[in-house]
Amino acid sequence: MFYIVTAFHTEAKPIIEHFGLKKITRPCRFQVFVGDNIVLVESGMSIVASAAATSFLLTEFGAGTRDVALNVGVCGAKEKSLKKGDAILCHKIINHDTKRAFYPDIIVKHAMKEGVLETFSSPVDKGEYSESRIEGDVVDMEGAGFFEAASFFLPPHKIHCVKVVYDYLDGERVDPVRVWEYIRGNIPLIENLMTCYNVLDEWCPEFFDEEEPEIVREISRGLKLSVTMTYQLKFMVRSYMARHKREPEALKEFLNVKVSSKNEGKIYFERIKEILSH
């Protein structure tokens, strides 16, 4: 699943249109749009708003380690070496207020430029701010909040800020049409990044830890196993599968067993331990 966080509807609109996302109709604190394998939330402006919306989204939809979170939006660039409309994949995100820096792992291929994003609590105008006080190549008001919040849920190679250069921190008025055009123009690059993640996930082995396999759940229920015993069973099954490269067929005979007491369950559990130790 791809979780996309934007600040404003003008940034979200081209993504919603491109992927055919539909607005969730149930009451919700944030505007959420869903589609095939994509969920998008509009956070509103500020570090805290972005962090709140990101946490909400990843909790509400039960994000796991196989999912990806993207913060997409416009930004201001410090230097004119970056052109308006350029998409920047940020390899370092600095919270200007706390000076805390976050580092996504850039593992998958992409066709964007890379740079450092610095997130401020208020709009930055180069006329009022000396350039030396700006550490980032690009500046926004959400990225660090998004990244810090997403880091509680996902590994660092699954969290990215994609920022599209809108102005040069010169206080230019935001034109919704131009924002739409800039984001729309970079959707192929964002989609390419997403495709690479899909390919990576096909290649990566399934992480068994995330959820119990069905057979473990069923047997645990039927044998009235304790939490500890269920955990042991899960480990034994995983261990068996790693050693034999197949599921333990002999376990299937325990699927229909329903015990009437925990003691009876323990007797079956010992038998299972013996079977899985080979």
């Binding site: 380690t65 820096a101 580092y103 792992d105 593992i107 880091s151 590994p155 660092p156 190679h157 990566c204």
Partner: peptide, 16 residues
């Protein structure tokens, strides 16, 4: 700050 980040995926990082 980079080496000890939480929730890194060692196997994925080994690829790159």
């Amino acid at each position: 700050d980079v080496f000890c980040r939480p929730r890194q995926n060692f196997i994925v990082q080994e690829m790159s």
